[in-house]
Amino acid sequence: MKKVIMIVIVILNFILQTSLYHFIGCFGIIPNVSLALVVVFALYSDSITGAFLGIITGLLYDIMMIDVFGIYTLLFFLVGSIVGLINEDVNKENAFSFFWITLISAVVWHLLMYIILFFLGLEYKEITLITGNIIFEIIVDAALAAALSKFMLYLFNKFNIKLLSRQ
């Protein structure tokens, strides 16, 4: 049940991310809520669930939005599975843990995106033009993940589902 709800949330968020969030983005920044969710759910579960949620999120982007298949699936899969691996070593009651792990994940996510696109022939010579935007977005993503970690605990509690193993 826990995994089914996670999948439903990931799909609903994808719809909102691509159809609604750009109406409410501020200073031209649209937070990557999909990434924040994959990190939060991977930390609340394990590497297999994290990888699975990462694949679903990435597939949605690859199928619906871009013409090269696999970029988003690969990036979200890597984030989901690697973050899921360290879930037992993280203090999940501390929102700052979510903040820092999402911050690092988002940096890696953007770096890998740059590398993949570079090898696909997009040189991005003027990458410095969006560096500020990316940094701002990463911080917003991390803050969102911290807030989402608490909100998801509350939401899953409402459904009487344990997110934390000791609950």
């Binding site: 994808f14 719809i15 159809s19 609604l20 109406f23 409410i24 949605l60 199928i63 619906m64 298949f69």
Partner: peptide
């Protein structure tokens, strides 16, 4: 498979986009 997923998702996206556009 991509086509079927697109057919299902694009309608929901259209609905949500219209809400955003209206606001």
């Amino acid at each position: 498979t991509e086509n079927i997923a697109g057919v299902l998702l694009s309608r929901t996206q259209k609905f949500v986009y219209n809400i955003g556009q209206t606001f």
